[in-house]
Amino acid sequence: MMQRTANILLVIGTATAALSGASARLPWREVVIERGVAQAEFLAFEVSLGGEVIAQKGAALDEGLCSKLDALGFSSIKVRSPAIPMELLDLNSATGEVLAEAVLLPGEIEVINKGRLIDPILTARAAAASVEFSTDSTPPRLSQDITLPAELRVSTFLNDKALATLAAAGVSQVPVKRAQPFRWHDWPGRWAFLLSISVMGVAVSIKRRALATISDAGRNEGSMSELKMNLFALAAAVDQLAEEAAQLSAAEIHAKLDPLIEGPSYTFVENRNVLKAAAGITVFADVMDPFSRGERQLARAWSASVDGHEGEARASLVRAVPLLHAATDAFPS
């Protein structure tokens, strides 16, 4: 019951935390409108009432529009975030900024080679420059070289080299990106996020308590004795096989190894966590370290027997014996 409650809480908490977290990246934010007070913001959506368009998307929130919206009963409105996605800057103050749009370099040209794949950006550039081109292939590629006005691409980082290029081309102002810095106090989703995280926290604490109870239950003698039985049975069987191996062919060793690997060895590995829960990580490591090395020697014996190398198969079995005994010795009594 406790586990189920915790699971439900954890699912609800995680889902609402993810949703509220996602709201930190909204392309808009809500601002309060005051009659006659202009704000340096722009509408994120078109505003319409009863089919009549009150204001277009992108309209500036000036005094007139604020008064109009206030009169219509709007107390708040969704505006673009960031308000200004780009800003025009003088070249000498644009160091370290990023171009928000491609900038043409007047007087300079760029030759686009024949064979270039035709994509929407190239099509738009050619259209803007009234340059026509032809294609005769699939996917479409230029069938001849074309010449377009040179440009610095959108998102170009304005380092010294880029600025020098722009200056040489006579460009004096550039459009640069303006991001909206994240402010915790301005984020309306913060309370929902904190609440969701708290729900997750409660669920986690219930789950941990429930798991501790299960770990206690894992200490029952039945599971441990089964685990011990598997390990000791494996060690004894490998002892015997290592002794008999001198008289066995590779194929016979292989045939005897399969049931050991798929039987007690596999079962021990599958149930190993009972030991961790019951005896703690140190004892678990003391058992699993030699067991795993012994298990690997069994796998090596298996591989060698399949390859027809009975000498290596026998040697690997002999190496496995003390390792598996070390594991049985370390197993808590």
Binding site: G21, A22, A179, K207
Partner: peptide, 24 residues
């Protein structure tokens, strides 16, 4: 470079991930 890295989302995801892994 344009100042628009999703750092807050990384941080919020980090808190959620830590809690989930702490569940046992």
């Amino acid at each position: 470079r344009g100042g628009d890295a999703p750092i807050p989302l990384f941080a919020m995801g980090g808190v959620m991930g830590a809690l989930l892994s702490f569940s046992g």
